[in-house]
Amino acid sequence: MSNLFTVSPSPHVHSAETTSKIMYRVVYAMIPALLWSVFVFGLDALRVTLIAIVACLAFEYVIQKYLMKIKPMITDGSALITGILLAFNVPANLPWWIIIIGALAAVGIGKLSFGGLGSNIFNPALVGRVFLLISFPVQMTSWPVLSEGEVDGLTTATPLGIIKEGLTSGTPVSQIAQDLPSSTDMLLGQMSGSLGEISALLLILGGVYMLIKKVITWHIPVSVIVTVAAIAALFWLIDPERYVNPIYHILTGGLMLGAIYMATDMVTSPMTPKGQLIFGAGIGIITISIRMFGAYPEGISFAILIMNAFTPLINNYVKPKRFGGN
C-alpha cells in the first residue's frame, strides 16, 4: 500500500455493527427453538433444516454467480436465515425434494429475482412456504405425531386444524377443547405443528435476545400479538361457544414464529416505529380473519406477505417526526 493519506468525507469512524453480525444474531436467536424441534421430532427435524440451509445457500451461490454474475454473498448470513426459517415453517416429515423446491422458490423467486438482499419485497422464507403450501397441500399439512424422537409415519392435525375442523362442522368449543393440548403444553411446545413454531416459550426467549442485541424492536411483535389477542378476545367474549379462547390463538400455530422472526424481517417491514405498529396491526387483523373466517386453519404467512406488499406504501405515508416540525 502506498504512503498517501486517505481523504474521505466525514464521518471518519464507524460503529462496529455489520450486516452479517445482525444476520448471525438472528440465527443464534433461533437455535433454542431448533434444538427443541430436534428433541420433539427427532433427527428428522435436523434433516429438514440441513437440507433447507444447504439448498438455500447453494441456490444463492449458483444464481448469484452464474445468472446474476455478481460476487456471491452467501457468507452474509441472509440465505442461512432463509434456510432455517423455511425449515421452521414446514412439517418435520416433509420429503427432501419438496424442501429443495421450497428453497428454490424462497431464494430464487422470493429474493434474488428482485435483485437480492435488501431489494426483495416479500419475506423469502414465506414465499417458499406459501409456494409449497399451495403446490403440495397434502404433504405440507401432514404433521408427524409426537413420539419422543421417533417418527412412525402417522400424521395428526395441529391444534388450529382441530379447531377449524370442529367449528366448520358445527361442534361447540367446549367439545373441541377436549382434543386440544393444555396451555402449558402449548407454551412449552408439546403439540404438533411445523418444525420451528411449536415452542412459544423458546421463540420468545430468542426474541428477547434479539431485542437486547437491538436486532429488532418491540413494535412489530407486540402489535401483531396484541391485535390478534384483542380481536380473538372480543369474539370470544361475544360467544365463547363459537369462538375459542384467545390463548389458543396466541400460543398455537405460527403466530409467535411469524410475529417475532418473520414479520420483523428488516428488509420487508416499515422503517418507522409508527409504521411498524400499523404493519403489525395489519398482520394481526389479516391473521385472525383467515383463522376465523377463511378456508385455511392458519393465516400468518399470508398475512405477513400481504402486509409486506403494503410496506412501501406505509413507508411513503408514515414519516418519522421531523425535528422542529409538528
Binding site: S2, L4, F5, T6, V7, S8, P9
Partner: peptide, 21 residues
Amino acid sequence: KTSQYDGASTCAIAASVYSGE
C-alpha cells in the same frame, strides 16, 4: 497521486470533498 480518495465513488461527491487525488 498525492492523496487517496476513499468515499462515494462519484466525481460530483469527490469534487465537493476536495480538489482531487
